[in-house]
Simulated scan of single mutants.
Amino acid sequence: MMRREFTQREKVLLLVLVVVLLLSGYVKLFLDPLNAQMSDAQNQLAQAQDLLTVEQTKLARMQKMQTELEDGDISGEVEIPDYDNINNVMIQLDTILTAASDYQMTFAELQFGNELVSRPIQMTFTAGSYSGARAILTALYQCKYCCALSGISVVSSDQNGSGDVKDQEVTVKLTATFYERNHSTIASDAEGN
């Protein structure tokens, strides 16, 4: 076997090779995983901050609703009347819809639940302007009898689209569902127990 001594140049090259191997090993074994962990941690922090923002928004909304309930803006004015309150509902609707230039109502079948009866009424009304229609919708929404508005569509009478919708006559279609207490179901449940 032949032994020969490395030249100065070969020793330097071997030393450079060892340093390169050590640096690449350090990068692959320690630095890359550490950078990946830091990147994951930053992503998790960003997601947590987004979630915190969403939760803070929800909390602010809930606090606002709580304040409105405590101020009495909502809590005491809406009542759920006993079943067959149609006469009172009609008087209320007539009062609200007098602001409309024309209106039609179609009564759907009553829907009986465990404790509530829902009375859906499809209605179409025409108002002189968008703000007039909005005032009627607001009055329906704030009706003293518990109701839900759904399927609302507003159509302007301006056929060619040249005018401002706020100043045009509009036709509104919607379903107003009034709720009533069904005491007969509650009474029969109480007798059955």
Rank of each mutant, 00 (worst) to 15 (best):
M1I: 09
R3D: 06
R4P: 03
R4C: 05
E5P: 05
E5A: 12
T7K: 03
E10M: 02
V12T: 09
V12W: 01
L15S: 15
V18T: 08
V19H: 06
G25Q: 09
K28R: 14
K28V: 02
L29A: 12
F30C: 01
L31S: 07
D32K: 07
D32V: 14
L34S: 15
L34K: 10
Q37P: 00
M38L: 10
D40Q: 13
D40E: 14
Q42H: 14
Q42M: 14
N43A: 11
Q44S: 11
Q49F: 08
L51P: 01
L51W: 06
L52P: 00
T53M: 02
Q56L: 10
T57N: 14
L59E: 15
Q63C: 03
M65Y: 13
M65S: 08
M65V: 07
Q66H: 05
T67N: 07
T67K: 07
E70N: 09
G72H: 11
G72R: 07
I74Y: 15
S75F: 14
E77S: 13
E79Q: 11
D82N: 11
D82K: 14
D82T: 10
Y83P: 09
N85H: 03
Q92S: 09
Q92C: 04
D94E: 15
I96N: 04
A100C: 06
S101N: 12
Y103I: 09
M105H: 06
F107E: 10
L110D: 06
L110S: 05
N114V: 11
V117K: 09
S118I: 00
S118Q: 08
R119H: 04
R119S: 06
P120Q: 02
P120M: 01
T124E: 13
F125K: 01
A127G: 14
G128H: 03
Y130I: 06
S131H: 06
R134M: 05
R134D: 15
A135R: 04
A135Y: 02
A139K: 10
L140A: 10
A148Y: 01
S150L: 01
G151N: 15
I152P: 04
S153N: 09
V155K: 10
V155G: 03
S156I: 06
S157A: 15
Q159C: 00
Q159D: 11
N160M: 11
N160G: 06
N160K: 05
G163A: 13
V165A: 12
K166E: 15
D167V: 04
D167W: 03
V172L: 02
V172N: 12
K173L: 08
L174K: 03
T175Q: 09
T175F: 00
T175S: 02
Y179C: 03
Y179T: 03
E180H: 01
R181L: 12
N182H: 04
N182E: 05
S184E: 08
I186F: 02
D189E: 08
E191G: 00
